[in-house]
């Protein structure tokens, strides 16, 4: 890769109770770009993000990685104080349900101001003034009234705007957005996605957009990584993933999504269900559900292999099921 990535993750593994939830995850996020991380429930996309942010409870999860470097700094080696500075000031995060992330007994303006006082050491008055500007910035109407309201007085869309205001208060270089619009109605979802898109160009901020919704990713992401059963099975530019997918899972996912602007006789399906972490198969973990399965696929779980610039997939089929590829480990 010619440009040094803003965030680079290699060999990320998360285990809980002896079971691997996430394995060999690699990600490269470029400055100012949106990287979509797509997968169904249990694929490990949220766990990966929490591990990168070092937000997983050490008593419950073991996290290992070759590296998680952010602007060249190794996040795994930072002490808690250093990490706390990174979270909030340099990388911030928004979630599906803002109600659980907001303090129910504190006016929303206070919650934005709090972030500014902690990370930018603003005075009480200055922080409030800035909080008001932030509410305006995320397009909350009548911000001077809303600033003193409590989360329950706001709609779901408004609450997500408040979360975004808190997240961008310190102008982070990376925003991790975990299913940011999943709980919202479609007309509101469109507004929030457009807001994120506009803020991204104003702040030159990278976004890791975690979602199960391929439509959202197609519209907003520059790069896409597809996760299945704890691993990234395909990664590439949005065009490569949507127009020329290589992994049968990616293909199946794209075809089982009913289009809003075309009529289909029948939806394509992927047979079976996503295996639970302790029941993942030995060889290719998608093998038992794959339409192109051959016996050789049972021998080992394929690693990500290069197929074109930016485009990698963990499948031996595009290379004619050549067995040597199975054990090949390639590095970007």
């Amino acid at each position: 890769m010619s440009v040094a990535p803003l965030l680079s993750v290699r060999g990320l593994e998360v285990r809980s109770g002896g079971v691997a939830l996430v394995e060999a995850v690699e990600l490269d996020l470029l400055k100012g770009q949106t990287h979509g991380l797509v997968g169904e429930s249990g694929s490990g996309k949220s766990i990966s993000a929490m591990a990168i942010m070092r937000l997983l409870d050490a008593a419950q999860f073991e996290v290992e990685a070759q590296h998680i470097s952010f602007e060249g700094r190794e996040l795994l080696r930072l002490d808690e104080g250093g990490m706390r500075h990174v979270r909030g000031a340099e990388i911030s995060m928004i979630f599906q349900e803002p109600m659980t992330a907001l303090n129910p007994v504190l006016p929303v303006g206070e919650q934005i101001a709090e972030t500014l006082r902690v990370h930018q050491r603003l005075s009480r008055t200055a922080a409030r003034k800035r909080a008001l500007e932030m509410l305006d910035w995320v397009r909350i109407p009548a911000a001077n009234r809303r600033i003193d309201e409590y989360p329950h007085q706001l709609s779901g869309g408004m609450r997500q705007r408040v979360m975004i205001a808190i997240a961008i208060a310190c102008q982070p270089k990376l925003l991790i957005a975990d299913e940011p619009t999943t709980a919202l109605d479609v007309t509101i979802q469109a507004q929030i996605l457009e807001l994120l898109h506009d803020l991204q160009s104003e702040l030159h901020m990278a976004i890791l957009l975690i979602t199960h919704d391929l439509g959202v990713v197609a519209g907003y992401a520059d790069h896409v990584s597809v996760m299945y059963a704890g691993r990234i099975v395909e990664t590439g530019t949005t065009e490569q993933i949507f127009d020329a997918p290589l992994h049968p899972y990616t293909e199946g996912l794209l075809r089982s999504h009913p289009p809003v602007d075309a009529d289909l006789a029948e939806l394509a399906t992927i047979p079976g269900t996503v295996p639970e972490p302790h029941l993942r198969p030995e060889g290719c973990r998608f093998g038992p559900r794959c339409a192109h399965f051959r016996e050789i696929c049972d021998q080992a779980d394929p690693r990500l292999m290069w197929f074109a610039d930016h485009h990698r997939a963990a499948c031996i089929r595009p290379r004619g099921y050549v067995v040597n590829d199975l054990l090949e480990v390639e590095h970007g």
Partner: peptide
Amino acid sequence: SAPRARVHERPEIVLK
């Protein structure tokens, strides 16, 4: 408003 699942095609914002 519905997402299109086509590359770089963003839904139109009609409703404020």
